[in-house]
Each structure stands twice: as C-alpha cells, then as structure tokens.
Simulated assay, not measured.
Amino acid sequence: MLRNIINEYLVAKKIPGGVIHVQQGNVVLYRDSFGSFVTNTGEVKEITMETVFDIASLTKVVATLPATLVLLDKKQVSLKDSVQKYIPQFQYPNINIEHLLYHNSGLPADLSPPVKRGDNRDVLEEIFSVNPIFEPGKTVVYSDLGMILLGKIIEEVSGETFDQFVEREVLIPMGMKNTTFNPKEEVRSLIASTEYMNGSYVQGVVHDEKAYMLNGVSGSAGLFSCLDDLVQYVHYWLHPSDQTVFNPAWLQDCHQKFFKHRGLGFEVWNGKDTEVTISTDWSIGSFGHTGFTGTSIWIDPKEKLFVVLLTNAIHYGRDVPKKEFRLEIHESVYETFIKKESTNYEKLD
C-alpha cells in the first residue's frame, strides 16, 4: 500500500523522490528509497538510502532543541530565563526561552517582507527589533524567528558557534556521523538538490533564505542529514532511559508537557487542536516535526511506532502537494500496521 502511494505521486510528478523508514519497537515495517534529483550540473541521480537531504525546519528539533536540553541539564540556562538576559539588544524582556520552544512568544512567523536569497539584510538585527503580534503565552504562532534567537542564545552561553556546539554536544554523542551544517564541497554532489533557482538547482547549500543569510547556520534551519542518522535520533526519544547523552526527564518533558498543540520544540497531537500536520488517526501524545523541503519525523510513544520520511519535494517547486503526500503516507502506516494489526510486514532492504 505504501509503495502504491509513493508510485502514484512519482508517476504524476508530484514528488520527485525520497526515503522512508517505518518501525515499531525493534521491527522494521517498511523501508524504501525512491525517485531521483537533478544535480546543479544537470546530471540525474537516483535517491538511495545513503542520500543526504536538506532537512530544513527539522533543524529545530534535531539540533536546537537537544542543544538547549544540554544547557538546561547543566543549569547554564533556565526555561524561564528572559531572552534579554543573553541578548541585551533584544527589546522584549517578558519573552523567555520556554516561549521560544512552545512557539507562543508573540513573535511573528517570519520577517516582513520575507527574506529573499539575493537580499542584503542583517537578519539578526531585524529579529532583535521585530514587533510581537500578541502577548507571550496567549496562543501559538509557529515562528522561525524564535528558534533563530534560541540558536543565538546557545552561542552566547557556550562561547562557541552554534554549529560547533551542536556537533560536539549533540551530533557526535548521538552517533549522527552524516549530519552537519554546511556540507563540505566534496560531498555536495551527493546531496539531494532542492529548488531550481537562477539557472540551476540548489545543491548542498541551505535552501532556507534566512539560514542562507546567516552563513548556513541557524537555530531554525540549515542542517543536512540522512535517513539512518534520523532513525538513530528517534530512538533517543522513544527510549529515553536507554541512553546517557541527555537527561531522560527532559526528553519526556519535551512532548509530555505541551501548550495547545506544541510541546517544547515539537508539535504534539493532543486530541483537540486539529492544526496538527500529521494524521489524527495516530495516538494522542504522538509528536514530531516537519521541514519545508519535504522532510518529517513522527513518533507514537504509545505504539512504539515512528516514521522518518525525507523527500526533495521542492525540487518541483514550492507548490507541490507535500502535505497531502505526508498525510497519505502516515494514514496508510496507521491503517496497515496498527488498525489492522497486520503481521504481513513489508520489508525492503
């Protein structure tokens, strides 16, 4: 069934390609690679299990959130600390770190006007002085700006660049060997290209415009990763007591303590707020995140089920039906493997 959905989108040229891993407990239910991409030199390459993707906003939970947990556990920061404590030029003392993680800080979703790739703008200075659109803690507006601020706080506290701190304290301890900001030149040709711009495809360079302006490194976007690294990442959240990198209590709090449909960093299906981007068929308490390029992770602690789905969707442009594709995939996973309690697991090497 999953392969049928994938083939339908591939044949209709709605999705160019991707990789998927579905697992419940220790059993791999489905694993596949599909489709292709065009390199920035015009060569067509098939997507494999080893293909690296620009994971876009998954950066928020794969890099920024774990890096924040490291500082919280070391008591170098507190959730209630004002952003202004670490960034004095930020103008609003009543916005704190917890607000940034819950996306209820009052900060808008993006800068206005939105940043374009060819702009010459100081993104950080604009964020420092942006006007909030509501009082902190009142509602949820998913904001890139808040996570960029959080990345800056991590730099101020650690005394390192954000990418250096994330590599040392998060990626290396978690064993994510193929996950990085600003991939080296020699591996860029192996990375799935994103959007066609200015006569060629963006390949191995961050797609997100604000992260691009920030030299490829931000708390909101910029990370590149592959399927197996993100499968490894998910195990930390499903089995918090079986690891020693993070305090298990913090890992649990991130999805068990939530405001509306947002946990600390994650989106959470709370059974009420239908803004959730993944199928509401999944268990209440399921959580995860998505990325603009066509990436997603979704985890169901009750069923010990998860899906890592990485696509290069915007290879075909920004209007592709990536949300519909993701929804169909996740609904099919639950229908096939949970509702029907199927034992006829599809396994592809």
Rank of each mutant, 00 (worst) to 15 (best):
I6D: 07
I6F: 09
V11Q: 03
K14D: 12
G17T: 08
Q23D: 09
G25D: 10
G25A: 12
F37L: 09
T39V: 03
T39E: 05
T41V: 05
I47L: 06
T51L: 09
T51P: 08
V61L: 05
T64V: 12
T68G: 08
L69I: 12
V77T: 08
V77Q: 07
S78D: 03
Q84C: 08
Q91M: 06
Y92T: 04
I97K: 04
H103I: 04
H103A: 03
N104V: 06
L107E: 02
D110Q: 08
L111S: 11
I127R: 00
I133Q: 12
P136K: 11
I153S: 07
I154H: 07
G159D: 02
G159A: 01
G159F: 02
E160K: 15
E167P: 10
E169P: 01
I172H: 01
P173E: 01
N178C: 10
F181W: 13
P183W: 14
P183A: 15
K184P: 00
K184Q: 12
E186M: 01
E186C: 00
S189Q: 15
L190Y: 12
A192Q: 09
Y196T: 04
M197E: 10
G199W: 05
D208R: 02
K210Q: 07
A211H: 04
Y212W: 13
L214K: 07
S218E: 05
S220H: 15
C226R: 14
L238Y: 09
P240V: 08
A249I: 12
W250S: 11
F259G: 00
R262F: 04
G263T: 05
G265Q: 04
G265R: 02
E267H: 03
T274S: 10
T280W: 06
D281F: 07
S283N: 14
I284G: 03
G285E: 08
T290A: 03
F292Q: 05
I297A: 02
K302D: 10
L310V: 15
Y316G: 07
V320D: 08
E328W: 00
E328A: 10
I329Q: 09
I329D: 11
H330F: 03
E331T: 13
K339N: 14
S342H: 10
T343W: 05
T343I: 10
K347Q: 14
K347H: 12
D349R: 06
